[in-house]
Each structure stands twice: as C-alpha cells, then as structure tokens.
Write a protein that binds this DNA or RNA. Structure first.
Lengths: 221, 221
DNA sequence: CCGGTCAATGACCGCATGGTCATTCTAGCC
DNA sequence: GGCTAGAATGACCATGCGGTCATTGACCGG
C-alpha cells in the first residue's frame, strides 16, 4: 500500500515500515475478500505471520483496524478523483467522462484490494458503524459527478433542463457498476468486462459514454 | 408470502399452511436483513416461535432453507417480469421502461423482504453456492432488458447502431440501483428516493427514462 | 385406559469468533 | 554476564454458530 499511514497505537507506528506494511497488507486483503463481519482476526493474523496478541496491541479492536483501513482507502480514492478532476478541467464533458472511467480502471489495477474494501462497504453496507457514514460517502460520490455536470451545463455543453443531482446519482451508479464488474466475476454477465483487456474496456467506455450523451432513441423520428 | 410453496421435507409440507407461512416468514425476514452467512438459525427459530430441532427437521440444513427461499424469490420476480412484458407488449419503448420501473416499485411494496433477499444476493454475492448461479441470475436480468431493446430496435424506435447487450447490462444496472435505493436507506444519497412517495418516484422515473432516451448532451450543437 | 407412533424439544457437541493477559523472549546498557 | 524494560506470544475465556439426538409429549385406535 505504498508509503505507510499513520494509524493504530504508538506501538504500531514505531514498528519498522516493512512490518507495518506486512500487517496492513494482510488486513486489507482480509477485509477486501470477506467484508467487515466475516473477516477473521485469526485468519488475518495467520497470513500476516504475527501472533494474535500483537494485532490487538497494534489496533485495540477489530473495528479500529477496519476504520484505519477504510480511512486509507477513502483518502486514496478522493485523492485520485481530485487529480483526475484537475487534469481534465478543460476537456469537454464526454472526454472528461471517458478519462474518468479509464483512470478508474487504472486505479483498480494499482489498488485492487483497497478498491474492493471501498466498494464492498459502499454496496453491502456491511460496516461496524451506522448508516450515516455510508450515506455521506455515497453522497460525496454523487456530488463529484453532479459538480462535473453542473459545470458542463454552465458551459452550454449539456441540456440546461436536466436534473443535476438526480442525474449525478444515476451516472455515478453507472460508473460504480462498471468498475465493480471489472474486478468482480459474478457481477459481469459474461460480457467480458471482468478483468477485460484494454480493447474490451474501450468498447465498454465508448458504449457507456455514448449512452449517457446521446441516449438510445432513434434520431429518425 | 401468499400461498405456500413446495419446499422442505415431507414433514414440513404436511404442516398446516399457517405454520408453514409463519416459518417461511421468519426465514425470509432473517435472510433479508442479514444475508446468508450472517443469518442465524438460532435467531430465526426464536422469531418463528419453534424449537431448534424442528427447523432442522423441516429443512435439513441452513443452505437447504436458503435455497428454498431464494427459489421462491426468483420465481416471483420472473413471474412479475413476464407479466409486465406481456402487458406492455404494444407500448413504445420509453413507456415500456416507465411501466417497468413503476411496477418494480410496486413489487417492492408488496414483497419487500423477498426483494431484499433477491437483490442482496445479487449484489453482495453472499451465497452458499458458487458464482455460476449468480452469474446466471445476473445474465437473465440483463437479457430481459436486451430483449426489450432488440425488439424496439427492430421496430425502428431506437438507434440501430447501439450495442444491444452492453446497453442492456447498463440499463439493467441503472434500474437495479433505483429499486435497491428505494428500500435501502444508505444507498439513497439523501435525494428522497428511499421510501419516496409517488411524487418523488415520478420524478425519478422521468429523469431516468429521459436520460436513457435522450442522453444529456445539449441539442444546441 | 392402554400402547404405539411420530412430531416437538432443548441440552449438548465441536468449532470458530473477538478479545485478554500472565508468561516468555529479546535487545540494550552497565 | 547480568539486569531490566517492553514487545511478542498463545493458552484461555465467554459467546455464538450449525447441527444432532435422546427424551418428552400429544394424539389415536382398540
């Protein structure tokens, strides 16, 4: 998970970066594959190669550990989105959408497990905390898109009568679906999106961006 | 869950319909709220008001019970979709989409728990069986929409160059998102879809159908 | 009223969980 | 080498799980 991250007890933060990394890696992997409730501290400790007592000295509870992992994932996702937003500032909306999707696939390639933790939580709601945080995280995703749309509307690129927030929600959910299906086998309906190569991805990106831009109604009538 | 359903051991099928119903109700409720893995037979038995031994005499294992519940849910969903397809045979595509969504909300009002079991499985993948069945269920959903689209294309209502299967997948995921958010608080981003009244739903339906039909690009250019 | 049948029951089993803590090990200093 | 501070350890705990089965109890024909 790249450079380390301030979390856990003082004891944990004083560990060698390699060991911190090893523990983090094991934790992310455990939560990514089983979600919060079904993740097992026993199993985690086994793959990390440390003793059970240690993990509870590093992070007092399972929940604390999860919070730290999630915070890291959220931080990285936000940072990624900000970067893409900055880099595509001047682009017309369709290209912006395309870049957003494409960079999303790249992000997953680089951080597959962190993405899994993030989306698993967002979709299943399997969390140690109440729904307020979930609602907040989801809203931020929708709002990111709403902002892009609003800007494009004000530039005259998009119809001025669209319902910005609802459409932001819808497009966000579309993008989420695509990204999830890219790394989750059972979400792909045998259409080649799951772990698809760049040619497959290009087709999906084009189809999606076109749908959003033009809709499907025949131009004839 | 309306009339009873052939499932479980002979002993269970010979029970009085009321008792069958009571057990089924408790099971659906348990699986709907906790998914498969986190559902507890102990808790289920408590809410059903029967003893633990009995439930294992009625259905040999937790998995058998889940299979029966899921089969019922899938059957009802399919039956519902067939009905809507039949009733909207002659309608233009946009109206068809609208009716499909509207009747989806109605279905949830009538069968909230069954819907929850069905969608929870489809989204979380938390199942006692492998991913093949999940892929199959998802594919059937996509194909239902692909068929509607194909028919509309052949009638000249839709652009003839659209990628029928990919667009079917995308629209299906859009509809799934809306329906899930209608009964799942944390999926609604504070936009009033969750348990929304009919005015809210109308707005969502209109926005969604318009997006799919016309896209968002300005007509000006 | 009896004896037989069979459904209902809940104590019990082996296992896994999140979490604790007394003990052991190790590294640094004199 | 001996001492000590503090990190690592895994046996242990209470709890809950899916599943079993000897016992109980309700009903029924004679």
């Amino acid at each position: 998970m790249d450079e380390s991250f301030d979390a856990g007890t003082e004891l944990f933060r004083n560990l060698s970066p390699e060991k911190q990394e090893k523990v983090f890696q094991a934790a992310v992997s455990e939560f990514a594959s089983k979600g919060y409730r079904n993740a097992s501290m026993n199993s985690l400790v086994r793959t990390a190669g440390i003793s059970k007592g240690s993990i509870f000295q590093y992070f007092k509870t399972k929940r604390n550990l999860f919070d730290a992992i999630l915070e890291m994932a959220v931080q990285r996702v936000k940072q990624h989105l900000k970067q893409v937003r900055g880099e595509t500032e001047e682009l017309p909306f369709p290209e912006r959408l395309e870049k957003l999707l494409r960079s999303g696939f790249q992000f997953i390639d680089r951080h597959p497990l962190l993405t899994a933790v993030y989306f698993q939580l967002l979709q299943s709601g399997d969390a140690p905390f109440g729904s307020e945080r979930l609602i907040q995280l989801r809203r931020q995703g929708s709002e990111f898109l709403s902002d892009l749309i609003e800007r494009a509307v004000s530039r005259g690129e998009l119809r001025s009568d669209i319902d910005i927030h609802r459409v932001g929600f819808l497009i966000n959910s579309l993008l989420e679906t695509l990204l999830r299906a890219y790394y989750t086998e059972f979400l792909d309906s045998g259409l080649g999106l799951y772990k698809g190569d760049s040619k497959e991805l290009d087709l999906w990106i084009k189809t999606t961006v076109d749908l959003i831009n033009f809709g499907i109604r025949s131009n004839a009538e």
